[in-house]
């Protein structure tokens, strides 16, 4: 198993001009998988995820010198990745100029046809249920359910209050349960 430096050690390396490239390379290696799968669950397609993961790290590279450590390094990275995903999904919907139901259908088809989806039938149903959630609610659900982040951390990432997040997560779970029962 790979051993990674602590976030503080990575940050020290990244904010020093001489070790910046080396430190950032280590940071990428530490967080690439977590961020990739977070993005992938939001946008489904590998090529889009790859592009958005690059965008996330490029933004992080440009902003790392200004990062003052007011939040955790990983919550900062997740915030960048989440914003990149939401912007991408909004732009895609506007460009496609279709209704939300049609967008949902397209997502479902993407999931059905994805050769890189390796989940079983139950997981497919679960992901189909997730796709019925609005993007921001899906983001909150993913961060809580898959990433197991605390509400306080999700609040930092999404810029939403803890109370609103708890409500959003509760309704997301209810919607998913209803969808699975109906399916």
């Amino acid at each position: 198993m790979e051993k990674y430096l602590s976030d503080q050690e990575l940050l020290t390396l990244c904010q020093n001009k001489e070790s910046q490239s080396y430190g950032f390379n280590l940071l990428v290696r530490k967080y690439q998988k977590r961020l990739y799968f977070h993005i992938r669950k939001m946008v489904l397609i590998h090529e889009d995820s790859d592009d958005l993961l690059q965008q996330t790290f490029i933004k992080a590279w440009k902003g790392i010198m200004l990062f003052r450590g007011e939040s955790q390094l990983y919550t900062w990275l997740f915030r960048i990745a989440s914003n990149v995903c939401i912007d991408f999904l909004n732009t895609k919907k506007k460009r496609m100029n279709i209704s939300l139901e049609e967008v949902e259908k397209k997502y479902l088809n993407t999931l059905e046809e994805d050769p890189l989806f390796t989940g079983d039938e139950m997981e497919k149903i679960f992901h189909r249920a997730l796709l019925t959630l609005p993007d921001k609610q899906r983001l909150v659900f993913n961060l809580k359910y898959f990433e197991e982040l605390k509400y306080e951390e999700i609040a930092e990432i999404t810029g939403t209050s803890v109370g609103a997040l708890k409500a959003s997560y509760y309704y997301a779970v209810e919607k998913i349960k209803t969808f699975i029962k109906q399916d």
Binding site: F37, D114, L116, F117, G119, M122, H127, Y145
Partner: peptide, 14 residues
């Protein structure tokens, strides 16, 4: 219930 069976590897990469 799929909610009880958390899978982090439903997606694969090249």
């Amino acid at each position: 219930n799929p909610l009880d069976k958390k899978s982090l590897h439903s997606f694969d990469v090249p």
